[in-house]
Design a protein around this nucleic acid. Structure first.
Length: 130
RNA sequence: GCGGAAGACUGGAUGGCCGCGGUUCUGGUGACAGAAUCGAGGAAAGUCCGGACUCCCAAAAGCAACGGUGCCGGGUAACGCCCGGGCAGGGCAACUUGACGGAAAGCGCCACAGAAAUGAAACCACCCUUGUGCUGAUGGCGUGCCAUCGGGUUUGCAAGGGAACGGGUGAAACGGUGGAGUAAAAGACCACCGCGCCUUUGGCAACAAAGGCGGCAAGGCAAGCCCCACCGGGAGCAAUGCCAAAUAGGGACCGCGCGCGGCGCAAGCCGCAGGGGGGCUUUUCCCCGAGCAGGUCCGGGUUGGCAGCUGUAGCCAUGCGGGCAAUCGCAUGGUCAGAUGAAUGGUCAUCCACCGUCCCUGGCAUGCCAAGGGCGGGGACAAAAUCCGGCUUAUAGGUCUUCCGCGCGC
């Protein structure tokens, strides 16, 4: 019982490991792809070629427009938490996601709304790709 | 009690759920999993000074240039920092502010105004002398002019001289006030004050006090150049070292070739000359040119990883001792982030500060204060990036200590 539950949770997690984007060229490629704007953030999504990497990859960007270092760190942490809770269930394998923070709203909006907005944004992106 | 001065501290708390980065241990061939433990600040900020550390310039000394500092003494690894003192401003006081060396080394500037802006000179006014207008007497005649002699008390003009007190200008005018003096006056003279010099005393010193002398000759700006004293080579952890990948424009050696002289068959060696080596000089020392059709070896930029990377000029806690203090010495114990698209959190609940508003109670100088309750808002400035010592700037609110002035009571 427990083991089967664990297996069901583990199997997709193994095939869809969520890793972090670290290279500047990856961000630049994602910036040219499709994007959806929400009140708290902007989401970009790019379908990778198969040879590049495995699993879901996600990156976070908060420019100086967001504020000083404290404000940028807080915005980035909330975006990271949203992605961590949502992407393993709803993300598509082989895609790069980039979340961009916005001045004020990313740190101020209620956390529930941020999550709902992210689900909505993913639905729009995935629907458009078909 | 009110008002003020100086200094120190704090920078929300607790809990639930879900996460992140080191280190150690356990399991596993390994990817990894689990457990334990640690995980931002007083400014982590600005990157403004001083160092440690690393590499580069061939080394040392001197000079020049450039940059910095600038009362004195102490502290420190060092500083432009800190402490104590002096001097000068501010404050009734506690206390506080200060690019605070040199203006008789030199250059430059000081607008406007004013007579004059620095070896002084003299516009108005003042005083003296002389002449004259003027005026008196005598004489002449063309009766209001001329000549001669005299006067200057008052007044006008001119010339020469005295003096630099007064006026006026200015930020500033070759000391200030008073006296005596004179034709009028002036440090020309006298007293006190200021200034300069000398001596003595106190102090390690900056400096202060006292006494004497000089008669005053010496305006400000050095944050304009400058002079004097002291300090400083440059770049910075994206330093620097190592490994791997992928590839050429690079380098070294060999070969051909190569200033002069000597030795030698030759290879080569020695000497001299020349050139190069941080701005210059000296000394010491090092290197040897240009070219290629070749051969062999090494390997740059770039990307990734590892080291540097956190343990010490330490820091923290407690105690003792020296010192007015900054701080120093000793003893014991502890040792506390090391990320790199960058961890140290996300979210929810309750509480504690704080703000706004409403209700009720009390006080009175009738719109304020104090206590209680309800509702709403809501956490200051700001996050390590090689590491230390400082400075500067930002900071909601709260806490504590010492001191000063005023009022009241004893």
């Amino acid at each position: 019982m427990e083991s089967s539950d664990a297996d069901r949770d583990m199997l997709p997690a193994v095939s869809c490991v969520v890793s972090t984007l670290k290279k500047r060229p990856d961000f630049q490629r994602a910036a040219r792809a499709k994007r959806v704007a929400m009140p708290g953030f902007i989401v970009q999504m790019r379908k990778r070629a198969q040879s590049e990497a495995n699993g879901i990859r996600v990156g976070f960007t908060c420019s100086k427009k967001v504020g000083n270092a404290v404000a940028r760190n807080r915005a980035k942490r909330r975006l990271r938490e949203v992605a961590r809770l949502t992407l393993p269930k709803l993300g598509q394998d082989g895609a790069d996601y980039v979340l961009i923070g916005r001045h004020g709203q990313t740190a101020a909006l209620p956390f529930d709304q941020l999550q709902q907005d992210f689900c909505k944004a993913l639905k729009i992106l995935h629907g458009r790709r078909k």
